[in-house]
């Protein structure tokens, strides 16, 4: 069994219409996901596909209407597991401004560890390590308000790292960032995954953040539309477009060329592969 597992997860939320009648809306509709420790997972889906509700289940911020969510052996529907789950599976949100609590960078990074009642000396050690892991050591005494969006998100990631989780879940962390900020955040995540073996679950609608994932889940209308390795996912261009997503530039170009009768293999996603194939065709 993997570190994150959901079994037939269903989540309904209730809203009211103009006549004050209760309406049930199914945000998640029978989700089965199994994530192994150390993987880099990307969940793709358009706005309203249920991907954010899914993320909140992994952190016990939401509880399933039916089905189960198990994080590192802990069932999220059991209330007494709540705090251990949040320590094991840290969460970073979309808006960098609305998740930092302290005025000073290092105080903010310490916040989660303080809440876990970690001894002071240990917090200091963890804060240093966490800041280093996202390359923010030079900014430790800076005011949070004067940082760029990408820097703020890296501080938020460091704050989770200081809680020493097994897994980190990010709900569209790059949606509000400029290209430089996006690159900084994705590079930090990749580093944490490769060097520290942290399991990363990245929720996004930016395709280019997905091409190096170990596994991709594409969500639409609360369900998994398709899942698998990037090469498999991006071979299904029509399906992705139907789900309101786009495909990486390389894949789209290959797809367009194939449509015109150029012989290229299925599911090209890396630049080098495409160039190699084009060179082969040209030399022929």
């Amino acid at each position: 069994m993997g570190i994150v597992q959901t079994l037939n997860l269903v989540y309904d939320y209730i809203t009211r219409d103009e006549y004050d009648n209760e309406i049930k809306i199914r945000a998640i509709d029978g989700l089965d996901i199994d994530v192994e420790k150390g993987q880099f997972i990307v969940v793709l889906g358009r706005n309203g596909s249920g991907k954010s509700s899914f993320a909140k289940h992994l952190n016990a911020l939401l509880r399933p209407t039916s089905g189960t969510v198990v994080i590192n052996g802990l069932d999220t529907s059991d209330k007494k597991n709540k705090w251990s789950i949040r320590q094991e599976a840290g969460m970073v949100f979309q808006n960098p401004d609305n998740q930092l609590v302290s005025q000073i960078v290092e105080d903010d990074v310490a916040f989660g560890a303080e809440n876990l009642a970690v001894p002071t000396d240990e917090i200091r050690y963890r804060v240093n390590k966490a800041l280093l892991s996202v390359n923010m050591t030079d900014y430790r005494m800076r005011a949070v308000n004067n940082l760029s969006g990408g820097q703020k998100q890296r501080v938020a990631i460091a704050g989770i790292m200081a809680m020493e989780p097994e897994c980190i879940i990010l709900d569209e962390p790059t949606a509000m960032l400029d290209p430089v900020g996006r690159r900084e955040v994705i590079e930090s995540l990749r580093k944490l995954n490769l060097e520290k073996g942290i399991t990363v679950i990245l929720i996004t609608h930016h395709m280019d953040e997905a091409i190096n994932a170990d596994n991709i889940f594409v969500m639409d209308k609360g369900k998994i539309l398709i899942s698998g390795k990037p090469s498999k996912i991006f071979a299904n261009i029509e399906l992705l477009k139907e789900a309101g997503l786009e495909v990486p530039v390389v894949t789209e170009l290959a797809y367009e060329l194939k449509k015109e009768g150029i012989e290229l293999p299925e599911g090209l996603i890396y630049e080098d592969e495409l160039i190699e194939e084009v060179v082969k065709l040209y030399k022929r």
Binding site: V249, L253, E256, L257, E260, I262, E271, I275, V278, V279
Partner: peptide, 27 residues
Amino acid sequence: IMDKIMQAGVPVRTDIINMEDAKEELI
């Protein structure tokens, strides 16, 4: 991408900035 293809020895134009033109040029 077009630039890299050119550098790999395929004589394509490199002033291309959108998918349509890239496709036509490669074809």
